[in-house]
């Protein structure tokens, strides 16, 4: 069994198209000004539907991280152990990624990198010095 490949929909297609171009896109509400991740048809802060896409600089900090020893499927078991992190991006939103290039802990500074996954490109993070 292969690792899951994200299946974009109308809400998320611009994000995944951005990843393919190595561009981390996120939404900002034109009404309340807050950023949000993941992309959707409405601002989850104020319920406005007028949202703009912006591009993140690609740097953030690890909010929490775990080293997974038992993956969900054979595809991940071959990678075990691997790190799953929640990353707070400098623009003020959070996303999940695997950590590449070393072992992260809470507070570790990271930058976004991109990996091919099936017919998609997914964002990951690596530790920055």
């Amino acid at each position: 069994m292969e690792k899951p490949v994200p299946r974009p929909n109308a809400d998320s297609a611009p994000f995944w198209e951005g990843c393919a171009a190595h561009e981390f896109r996120f939404q900002r509400c034109n009404s309340c000004g807050k950023p949000q991740f993941y992309s959707r048809a409405v601002c989850a802060h104020c319920q406005a539907t007028d949202l703009s896409w912006e591009v993140a600089a690609g740097e953030g900090t690890v909010h929490s991280v775990t080293t997974v020893h038992r993956g969900p499927s054979v595809a991940f078991k071959e990678d075990s152990p691997y790190q799953v992190a929640l990353v707070d991006m400098d623009e003020g939103f959070r996303f999940m990624a695997n950590v590449r290039g070393g072992e992260a802990e809470i507070g570790t500074p990271v930058r976004v990198i991109y990996e091919k996954r099936g017919d998609q490109t997914i964002p990951q993070v690596e530790i920055r010095g």
């Binding site: 690792k3 994200p6 993941y38 929490s64 991280v65 997974v68 499927s73 999940m96 996954r117």
Partner: peptide
Amino acid sequence: QALAEVGNQQYEQPYGMTIPAAYALVAQR
């Protein structure tokens, strides 16, 4: 494996997040 599929298909499952891993993120924090 079945429980791991309750994770978000686009933003969690690609990273091999399991239910224990999600609670582990809570525990670490």
